[in-house]
Structures are given as C-alpha cells and as structure tokens.
Write a protein that binds this DNA or RNA. Structure first.
Length: 431
RNA sequence: GCGAAUAUAGCUCAGUUGGUUAGAGCGCUGGUUUGUGGUACCAGAUGUCGUGAGUUCGAAUCUCAUUAUUCGCCCCA
C-alpha cells in the first residue's frame, strides 16, 4: 500500500495538544474581554461567495484568495478576512441587531500566498467592530478592549505600543503641499515602507514618481512628527482629521490607555478600505510584524451594500502574538492537567472504577481513565506522565473491603477510602 | 511570482576527501523495586538518511527533479 504525505498542505498548520494550549487560552481571553466590553458574538461561514471578497479597486488581493468552483458552478472562496462577511451579515440583519452595534468574532482565515515570518496561509483572527457610530470614542473603546487582552496575556506598555495615524490627515497634508489626490495611493505605498527601507531609498522612490524635492523634504519632516502639537503647523487650523486624533487621545487618557498610544504618521494600513483613523500595534523592539491593526472604514458598507453605515474595527491574529509571547515567556510544553486519573489492577474491578468516575463527573471533578488494567507501577507511571493531580486505583486487596487507593500525585500523600464515602473523597481532593 | 538555505530516530541535532554494521542528548521500553510515579543507576529498541531518478565498484554524503519547512523579496486583511 502506498503511503500518503503526512505533511499538512503548504502554509497550513497541525496543532499538537501542547501547541493548542496557548491558542485555547488566547481564544478564551478574546471571548472574555469582548463580552466584558459589550461586544456581541456572531459567526459567519468559512466559505463565502468570491464576489464578497474580491476587491474591485484594482488591488490584486483577489490573487491571494483561496477560491474554487463548487459543484453547481458557484464561485466560492475561503474567507481571507472576517470583515466582508460581517458587513454582509450586519447589512442583512440590521433591524434585528442593536444600532449602533458592537460585534466580535474569532475565525480561521485563509490566503494563498508565500508563508513568511508571522504570516501563514491560514491563521485565526479576532475581529472587533463598532458599527453605526461616528464618534471617535469608538476607536478608543476598541483600542482599550485590545489592550485589556494584551494585559491579560501579561504584556504592558513596555512590551508593545500602538502607532496611530489618520489617513485623512496625511491626505490633507499632501494636498496642502500641492500633491493632488490621484497621486496619493502610489505615494502612500512608499510612505508605508518607512520603517523597512533607508531614508535615501525612500527619497529615490519618491523622485521616481515625480515628487519634487521640496515636497519630499516636507513629507520627510512631516513623517518625523511624534506629537499632535508638532503636527499642528502642517495642517489647516480647522483640520477635522487633527480634531479626530485629539478626540482619540482625550478618550484614551480617560480610559487610562494613553501610555500605549503614539502618533506615527507613516501608518497607512495597506490600500484597503480605511478612511480615517488607522492604527497598528508593534512590539517595542519592532522585531515582529504588527500584532493587531485596524481603523475606521466609513465607506465600505455603502460601497458593498448601499447602506451608509460608519464603522471602525480591529483584526488581531494568532501568529504574531504567539511568537511574541514565546519570546518573552517561552513555550508551553505540558498537557493541561486533569484532576483525577482512574485505573484498576484487573478487569473484574473495572466496573467499580467506571462507577467512581461517574461520581467524579457528577461532582464536577475532571477525570480521565486508563481503560486497560495495569499493575500499580505502570498505573502510577501513566498517572504521573499525564499530569493528573490525583490518582484513584482499584486493587483486589482494597476492593474486598469495598475501598480504593486515592493518592495525591504532587505530595505523595495517599489514603484508603471507602468507595461510597463520596464526601471524604471530595474532601481529600479539594483540601 | 522571485531568490537563498534546510530535510538523518518520536523531538533537538552530529555524521570527516564518497568506503564495511548509521551516532549523541532528550523522550520511549525493560530492570535495580513482582502493590506505587517523579530522582538516581543499569540495559534495550529506535531509522526506506523527505521522495524519485542519475553518476559510481560503492551514496546520508555528488548531480538532477520533486515535495515540505525556514529566511528574505513582491504583496498585505
């Protein structure tokens, strides 16, 4: 018989139980923090129509969609992100959902591209969105929620920083130095690379697209500004974009998250649907890719559904945060422990062991069982390897008295207890 | 899509100019202890050397193809 390739498909991951421990905790934190901040959970399919994900604005993201034709010749794609499906869901069900609404979801997303550090062909992403709210405190609320997640994972303002900008601000500035709107896109692609390439190379790239050197000087100067006060002279006095950033920082101060935020006018967020404030979180040393990112996308609903709903949101993937946490705390290498493991010396005693496990279940004690009979040495070795806190062993001598051995695997303390005396059993386990 | 590196035991990795029977540590199995795990000591098994072809008297080692992984570029929700 020919054997199959045991590797998962390119860029996809298998998770061993020990690998999943972290992800399970991460998702638990995502869920808990979303709920305690008023976000409602929704789910959408892993596949959706190709049309939903396709970008019409000349972007070539469509090439990276994992798409196929189904048996009825429908053009289907695995989701590359959660936002389009969420937009579809909200536009369809708006009347039965709150308005404005806070929504969240955690889902596996796929993209067909070369895997690199921090990017696979598949990842889990947490999405937070606030829909129907123009007030900039929505952005602050989302950032605060994400920061709570980071704090629960043991990371604080010394570990990461959120770089904040406003696309409209950059746009206003470029207009003010005489660069017309049609040229902003190609220029923003260059500005987005600011931290990746040397300043000289960036200048050359700008020269290539016919930006005057006097303009380049001003752009570089603008990109170096780190505070709102420094930016003020570069834009008009009544700049709405600047007011939005002021509003965000005021709200951040009130939410006690100001230490996490910094102005970084080079943040662009690709060429996607963002219209206003944009942000990306980086580890302090900028060793890794962005941990999470997002911003305001006020025209996406209108473009996709014809319904004019302002929105802002955030996407937070599992890959970079795992790398960051592994570098700070190391990787988890253990199984999650079970409270009690049961076993028996011979098959005749298995009924009693099974019955005892049912008692544990009834009392909310997690239990595992070695289903084949084992001599004590092997049983306790197995109990130890599986990380059980207690081991319950049914052996002939005790069974004659209708008792069994219950051992604390950490302290080594051991008791012979009657099988029916549930309260004593629970006392020993809970002590 | 482009470029580079890597692939040897369950895991992390050695393996000389191509040369006899393929190595270590961890883990695994057994024993010291036939009713008690972790520590220690002793012993044992690890395997299609990623896959397929080629060169050669002889290939883990050289060549080509192929698959996967990692890093960089392109791109980026």
């Amino acid at each position: 018989m020919s054997s199959i390739d045991l590797n998962p498909p390119r860029g996809m991951r298998d998770f061993l139980p020990k690998d999943w421990v972290f992800r399970e905790k991460l998702m638990q934190v995502f869920n808990d923090v979303s709920k305690t901040n008023g976000f409602l959970h929704y789910e959408t399919p892993v596949v959706d129509s190709y049309e939903l994900f396709e970008r019409k604005a000349g972007e070539e993201i469509s090439d990276q969609l994992y798409d196929f034709t189904d048996k009825s010749n429908r053009h289907i794609s695995l989701r590359a992100e959660l936002t389009p499906s969420m937009v579809r869901l909200y536009a369809k069900n708006k009347e039965s959902l709150p308005f404005p609404a806070k929504l969240y979801s955690i889902g596996q997303c796929f993209r067909y591209e070369r895997a690199t550090k921090g990017r696979k062909r598949e990842h889990y992403q947490w999405n937070l969105d606030i829909l129907g709210e123009n007030n900039i405190s929505a952005e602050a609320w989302i950032l605060s929620t994400a920061i709570q997640v980071m704090n629960k994972l043991g990371l604080n303002e010394n570990d990461f920083q959120i770089h904040v900008s406003n696309r409209a601000l950059l746009s206003d500035f470029l207009l003010s130095i005489g660069i017309e709107k049609e040229r902003h896109s190609e220029l923003m692609i260059i500005i987005d690379k600011k931290d990746k390439i040397p300043a000289e190379v960036m200048k050359e790239m700008m020269e290539e697209i016919k930006i005057f050197s006097s303009q380049i000087e001003k752009i570089i100067e603008f990109l170096d500004k780190k505070t709102l006060e420094e930016i003020r002279p570069f834009v008009q006095k009544d700049s709405l974009a600047l007011q939005e950033l002021e509003h965000l920082f005021a709200a951040a101060k009130a939410l006690n998250i100001a230490p996490y935020l910094r102005i970084d006018t080079s943040i662009i967020r690709g060429l996607s649907y963002y219209t206003g404030i944009v942000f990306e979180a980086f580890d302090t040393n900028k060793e890794f890719r962005a941990i999470f990112g997002g911003g305001r996308y006020n025209s996406l609903f209108d473009r996709m559904t014809g319904k004019d709903i302002p929105a802002c949101g955030l996407g937070f993937g599992d890959v970079v945060i795992e790398e960051l946490i592994a570098s700070k705390f190391g990787r988890t290498e253990t199984f999650p422990g079970i409270q009690v493991i049961l076993g028996q010396f011979e098959d005749a005693l298995q009924g009693k062991a099974l019955h005892l496990s049912a008692e544990f279940t009834k009392n909310d004690i997690s239990s595992d069982m070695l289903l084949c009979s084992l001599p004590p040495k092997k049983f306790f070795t197995q109990a130890n390897k599986r990380g059980a806190k207690f081991a319950a062993y049914l052996a002939p001598e005790e069974a004659k008295e209708n008792t069994f051995v219950l051992k604390n695997m950490e302290s080594g303390e051991q008791k012979i207890l009657p099988l029916e005396d549930i309260s004593s059993i629970l006392d020993f386990i809970k002590a």
